[in-house]
Design a protein around this nucleic acid. Structure first.
Lengths: 144, 144
DNA sequence: ACTTGTTAGTTACAAAAACAACTAATATCC
DNA sequence: GGATATTAGTTGTTTTTGTAACTAACAAGT
């Protein structure tokens, strides 16, 4: 019986993407975990608010493509640790505007700098054009 | 106070990689989940054995960079559903050689074809050179 | 032979994620 | 105005993962 072996697992894009994402995520994860005890979704919520300004949990769900239960729990955790505060909107009391506290802003600034650094290091071996092509391709694949 | 906003979250490579991996993994995941009730690690173990031939759990751990507990559970699950069998090696009874059953080979063939198809569709919008560059970059980032 | 160390794999328990069911507020249709 | 549907967000339960401790087999030095 002859096997086909059309392609290698290492050439399968979903697999490759996953391996790369896992490898690249690890180091940064250590930082926000050890320095602030944050989970991945918590860091993402923090980053959204820090980078794009106040918004509701729903906004974050849509922008980051994270399920609302994950965001809900991340928001609770961040609030209980004093990184953000919630204000119910008067015009529609279902929504609540989330905004970072000074501690939140400070954590964001710190982590954002680490992230920027790390990103630079990750792509140090790529030319400017290669970097652009890579990010373009990834954005396309991610439908962002 | 002026914010720096060095970069966008969507330009942060670990984030981008993650979003792309998640998006691209979804569709294929549905297939192996619905068609064979497999988990991600189970599909990977199946693929390793189908594509690269019999090997031990440890070999799979090393090649796929998966923790041994995950592989152990995946192997048990695949075995209990009749997709693979284990044979303890005589020269060293700590090892066991894993090999696919006919049902396992059949599932592999099927899923492998689906994967090949899907990969082709994913990269349909890229030129041959762009595809090569993308995979090269990802392999580099994944340290594969 | 016998302590010490290492390796392959499993098991048990804790953390995190996925999924579904729920509440409360608003919108819509009759 | 009142039943019905939607929407934002939460809570509870089940899967899945991560971590650490464990067993069994072997290796190596003394």
């Amino acid at each position: 019986m002859t096997q086909k072996h059309d392609f290698d697992l290492q050439d399968f894009l979903p697999y490759l993407l996953n391996q790369a994402a896992e490898e690249c995520g690890l180091e940064f994860q250590k930082v926000y975990k050890q320095r602030y005890g944050m989970l991945r979704t918590e860091w993402r919520v923090l980053f959204h608010l820090g980078r794009y300004g106040d918004m509701t949990a729903k906004d974050i769900c849509d922008r980051a493509r994270v399920h609302k239960t994950k965001v809900s729990r991340a928001v609770s955790a961040l609030q209980s640790r004093g990184f953000l505060k919630r204000v119910q909107l008067e015009q529609d009391r279902r929504h609540e505007r989330l905004s970072l506290t000074p501690a939140g802003v400070s954590a964001y600034s710190d982590l954002q700098a680490v992230a920027a650094d790390y990103d630079t290091r990750l792509t140090a071996n790529f030319s400017a054009e290669e970097q652009r092509n890579l990010r373009d391709a990834l954005r396309l694949l991610a439908r962002l």
